[in-house]
Design a binder for these strands. Structure first.
Lengths: 345, 345
DNA sequence: TTGAAAGCGCTAACAC
DNA sequence: GTGTTAGCGCTTTCAA
């Protein structure tokens, strides 16, 4: 690798002159600057970031710690963040945790060792205490999920409210047995969504036994498949199902489109998130739309400001974006409401 | 930040002893090691990668340079690569180019400055010459797309063959006016796919005017929409359409599902790539399946081996994975074949 | 306008 | 078993 010393020797200058010329220092003559730049280009000189960092320069790297980049929520976030960072001369380190706290910890150790300027993290359910400690030394924000041990900076969506709305939609249509397939309650988002689901049921004066709840890994398409199969196999299967994660929604849609179940005649479905494809699934999927992009943009802007500003303004900041229900064709009143004659009595 | 010097002072040891203890050097007594590790943990010591790198350590960072992470091809690649790297103690730097060669160049400058151990790149159509020069100093592989200036290492799919197959499928069904919506020919993949399309036409003895070709930005959903609208608006609209990129396919599907065009009655469609959702689009999308995941795995393994091995084995290596046609309901013989009475004569 | 030299945190060669 | 010292490539005094 070519160093400033190499350039200095070739031009018979000192390293400091070369360094200053490269930095466009005003004390260096235009003539020298020109010669130095010329030589640097010819020799293929590329400044060594590590050496700069030793002199106190920042790494200009922001870590993005997420469960799985294939989830479109996270790839949207990665894209928006990346765009923003690039414009500010920052780079994005991508760290996938697969929802494993030890993997998460390893990534945070790396980010810390490479002195990342900042971190955006969608934490695992119960982060390792060392993870929390490491993050104390790095400006960071939590995204979507929130764990108290990682500090008060959080950008998320109103999980409770959006699930409440979605469930209310079914309740108002007259469903009295409603299923929920979602992530585990130990996950912040999982707990909030479940709470929203339950809140709608009680608001609709439905008894607790009206609920059919299936919790499991939120990013497992396979689990979505199996859960919906289980729900529909019961003797008193729900007439409406609310979904609590995008991957679970994927699994449920796949499963339903390969069975003979007719939506919404046999069962109504409310999805989570609005992917390309959800609109053309069966009769069109009624689903919860979430402002992921806007949230990611906001988060990126906030972090950039935080990094450029004095480090002592670590005032708590929380941003909660609202979601909204997109009503399409996959929800309708249950069969026994549409054809009262069929009612058991 | 806590340094080895800080630990040394606190324990009244020398920095080298501390360094050796931390490195688990055999010459250091267990007792000292214990004390050092204890102190390090207490003080929250995190080794400084930059300093290590100055002593010759590698960065343990691999750059992934792609157009847009939201494209599921690229997020699949990012995921597979990330998984592989993590297991080997490497980190992944994500660089999105948005198919802009200057952005690509900026990212490569950064990767070079931070002495990335390796680079996996899906190059823009015509990379900057400086980009090529920078890559010469870093072990790298091209993925999917290929540009000769960036070297002979390439992992891709057989774009020609898969497009030929897809087009042949329509030709064999009797279509005589076939549309192609794809990326620009200056893109390696764009040129290959177009070649495959044309090859099938001539193989089917169709005249050149049988082709309706729409080229444009390959990752623009909007362009897909407009292109299909244009094709179908013509007086002699094609009875079959072949698509040449995943995002264009998305756009076409969205457009078709919001108009009154009936697939495959009015027009047959062959998509590109097999996304979740393509199978439940309309009558089920006949599409080209590509082994993206397998390719990414292979690419990751190859790069890892390349990084662990002596740098002098830069023998050219090329891997071409075959795609396959997945026939579903969106293709059928054209109307005038199904009802011969309608034939113009 | 330029040069000499110190030092960032770490490792490794060379003492003892 | 432990300490001393030099040096990685760069920036930044301090001198000239």
């Amino acid at each position: 690798m070519v160093t400033t010393k190499d350039i200095a020797e070739r031009l018979d200058l000192s390293v400091s002159t070369v360094g200053r010329a490269l930095a466009d220092d005003h004390r260096i003559s235009e003539q020298t600057k020109f010669r130095v730049r010329q030589a640097a280009a010819e020799m293929g000189y590329v400044a060594n970031r590590a050496a700069r960092m030793m002199r106190g320069a920042s790494s200009k790297v922001v870590g993005l710690v997420i469960p799985d980049i294939r989830n479109s929520f996270y790839s949207t976030i990665a894209h928006e963040l990346s765009k923003n960072l690039e414009s500010q001369g920052f780079q994005l380190m991508l760290s996938e945790t697969d929802d494993d706290r030890m993997v998460e910890l390893r990534h945070l150790r790396e980010l810390s060792a490479s002195r990342a300027s900042g971190v955006v993290i969608v934490p695992t359910a119960r982060p390792h205490s060392e993870s929390a400690k490491l993050l104390q030394g790095i400006p960071h924000v939590q995204l979507l999920r929130k764990h108290s041990s990682l500090g008060p900076q959080w950008f998320g969506v109103d999980d409770f409210e959006v699930l409440r709305q979605a469930t209310m939609h079914l309740v108002e249509q007259g469903h009295t047995r409603i299923g929920y397939i979602g992530g585990p309650a130990e996950l912040h988002t999982g707990a909030e969504r479940l709470r929203g689901f339950r809140s709608a049921l009680s608001e609709g004066k439905l008894p607790a036994r009206a609920a059919r709840i299936e919790l499991g890994p939120p990013s497992s398409i396979e689990h979505g498949r199996q859960a919906v199969r289980r729900l529909l196999a019961e003797p008193t299967a729900p007439t409406g199902i609310v979904l609590g994660s995008i991957q679970l929604t994927r699994g449920v849609l796949e499963e339903l489109s390969r069975t003979s179940v007719v939506v919404p005649k046999d069962v109504s479905v409310v999805g989570f998130g609005d992917e390309p494809g959800f609109s053309w699934w069966g009769p069109g999927l009624t689903t919860m739309g979430l402002p992921i992009q806007a949230m990611a943009v906001g988060c990126g802007l906030w972090l950039m400001r935080r990094l450029k500003t004095e480090p002592d303004d670590d005032t708590p900041y929380t941003s909660v974006s609202p979601g909204s229900l997109i009503v399409r064709g996959s929800t309708a009143p249950p069969a026994d409401m549409r054809r009262p004659a069929r009612r058991r009595r």
